[in-house]
Simulated scan of single mutants.
Amino acid sequence: MTRRGEANDPKPERLPLDPRGEFPAEEPDLVPEEDLEEEGRGDAETAALVPLRERPLPSAIDPLARYIQEVRKFPPLDPEEERELARRYRETGDPELAKRLITANLRLVVKLALMYRRALRSVMDLIQEGNIGLLEALKRYDPDLGVRFSTYASWWIKAYILKYLLDNARLVRVGTTNARRKLLYNLRREQRKLESQGIAPTTKLLAARFGVSEEDVEDVDRALSAQDVSVDVPVGEDQRTRLGDLLPAEGPSAFDQVAAAEVKERIDAALEEFRAGLGERDRALLDRRLAADEPATLQQLGEEFGVTREAMRQAEVKLKRRLATFLRDRFGEEVRLHFLQ
């Protein structure tokens, strides 16, 4: 997964509400979140994260239950010990100190990942992303901020989990730009706020509030209201037909392609007939200027034929009129070439 560039270091007076510089602090409307408790991550709480008695599979073959059992082996840190380890790690970069800080907070990652378990089937994928966020938090954490590492890290953990959900929770990606990602997080919330104030949440008003285009608002609103459907889903009584087989193909139909090819063939033949009756200078204007992909300039053609640029321009105007009359007589008013406009 491609990572974005690093954001600025957080300032002591404010926690990084947007640690990756990609989305605001609020969670997106497509992923509901429960309240986060800041402290008290003891063994009893970790055991309550996933009640094993309610799980149908034993921990020996259930990856999540097995992972939680392993995480419980690492005791949490008290605030003073955590601050001292973080300070020493910041000074020395000792990997053993980093390991102690990371392992003591693995259960925090599990807790935050489980808050989004309804948005994705594999909680382990969310835990993996959260662990990457935890490592990023350790890299940036300043113990002199006066904030516990676990509280600071929770923002980074959630940032990585939410980015993963935006990229993978839907078949069709919607939050592909910063503007659309902002809308994914706040569009529904802003609509409810405006409605509670008696204001109609029009597309134009929402676009102005978020500083995005009306097209972005419409696309994200449509994506939030709709449900992704795979084109491979079977349809019909026999279940042999796929949805994709019934969708119209993009571009012109086979009939239109055949008709266009026939018209082009007739026009090419007419142009060749018209060209045969031209003099050398007019043929050069037709081939190298009117019908060319990269037209020559009037100055270049004038120098070749020993006349001024204005003389070539007047010759081109007359040639266009002759060609337009010729095609009108041959095909009527239906055919218009772009270089005659």
Results as ranks from 00 to 15, higher is better:
residue 96 E to M: 11
residue 97 L to R: 13
residue 97 L to I: 09
residue 98 A to Y: 05
residue 101 L to M: 09
residue 102 I to F: 14
residue 102 I to Q: 10
residue 102 I to E: 10
residue 102 I to Y: 12
residue 104 A to R: 08
residue 104 A to D: 07
residue 105 N to I: 01
residue 107 R to L: 01
residue 108 L to F: 02
residue 109 V to E: 03
residue 112 L to A: 00
residue 115 M to N: 14
residue 115 M to C: 03
residue 116 Y to T: 02
residue 116 Y to E: 02
residue 117 R to S: 11
residue 118 R to Y: 05
residue 120 L to W: 12
residue 121 R to S: 13
residue 122 S to N: 14
residue 122 S to Y: 06
residue 123 V to T: 14
residue 124 M to E: 12
residue 124 M to T: 13
residue 125 D to G: 02
residue 125 D to P: 00
residue 126 L to I: 06
residue 127 I to R: 04
residue 128 Q to P: 00
residue 132 I to C: 02
residue 132 I to D: 00
residue 132 I to Q: 03
residue 133 G to C: 06
residue 134 L to C: 03
residue 134 L to D: 05
residue 137 A to T: 11
residue 138 L to M: 11
residue 141 Y to K: 07
residue 142 D to M: 10
residue 144 D to L: 12
residue 144 D to R: 15
residue 144 D to S: 15
residue 147 V to S: 07
residue 147 V to K: 08
residue 148 R to T: 13
residue 148 R to D: 15
residue 149 F to L: 15
residue 150 S to V: 09
residue 150 S to E: 15
residue 151 T to G: 00
residue 151 T to H: 08
residue 151 T to Q: 06
residue 153 A to T: 07
residue 154 S to H: 01
residue 156 W to D: 00
residue 157 I to W: 06
residue 158 K to D: 11
residue 160 Y to N: 04
residue 161 I to H: 07
residue 161 I to C: 10
residue 162 L to E: 11
residue 163 K to W: 11
residue 164 Y to W: 15
residue 164 Y to P: 04
residue 165 L to R: 09
residue 165 L to C: 10
residue 166 L to W: 07
residue 167 D to Q: 14
residue 168 N to Q: 03
residue 169 A to Y: 05
residue 169 A to V: 04
residue 170 R to T: 06
residue 170 R to E: 09
residue 170 R to H: 13
residue 171 L to G: 15
residue 173 R to L: 04
residue 174 V to K: 05
residue 175 G to T: 10
residue 177 T to L: 02
residue 177 T to F: 03
residue 177 T to Y: 06
residue 177 T to C: 09
residue 177 T to V: 04
residue 178 N to Y: 13
residue 178 N to L: 14
residue 178 N to H: 13
residue 178 N to W: 10
residue 180 R to D: 05
residue 182 K to I: 08
residue 182 K to F: 10
residue 184 L to P: 09
residue 184 L to C: 10
residue 186 N to C: 11
residue 188 R to S: 12
residue 188 R to Q: 08
residue 188 R to H: 01
residue 189 R to D: 13
residue 191 Q to P: 00
residue 194 L to T: 08
residue 195 E to K: 14
residue 196 S to V: 00
residue 196 S to D: 09
residue 197 Q to A: 13
residue 198 G to P: 01
residue 198 G to T: 02
residue 199 I to F: 03
residue 199 I to Q: 09
residue 202 T to M: 12
residue 202 T to P: 11
residue 202 T to H: 12
residue 204 K to W: 00
residue 204 K to Y: 00
residue 205 L to A: 14
residue 206 L to I: 14
residue 206 L to W: 11
residue 207 A to K: 04
residue 207 A to T: 08
residue 208 A to F: 03
residue 208 A to V: 05
residue 210 F to E: 08
residue 210 F to V: 09
residue 211 G to I: 10
residue 212 V to K: 05
residue 213 S to F: 11
residue 214 E to Y: 00
residue 214 E to P: 02
residue 214 E to A: 06
residue 214 E to G: 14
residue 215 E to K: 15
residue 216 D to F: 11
residue 216 D to W: 08
residue 216 D to G: 12
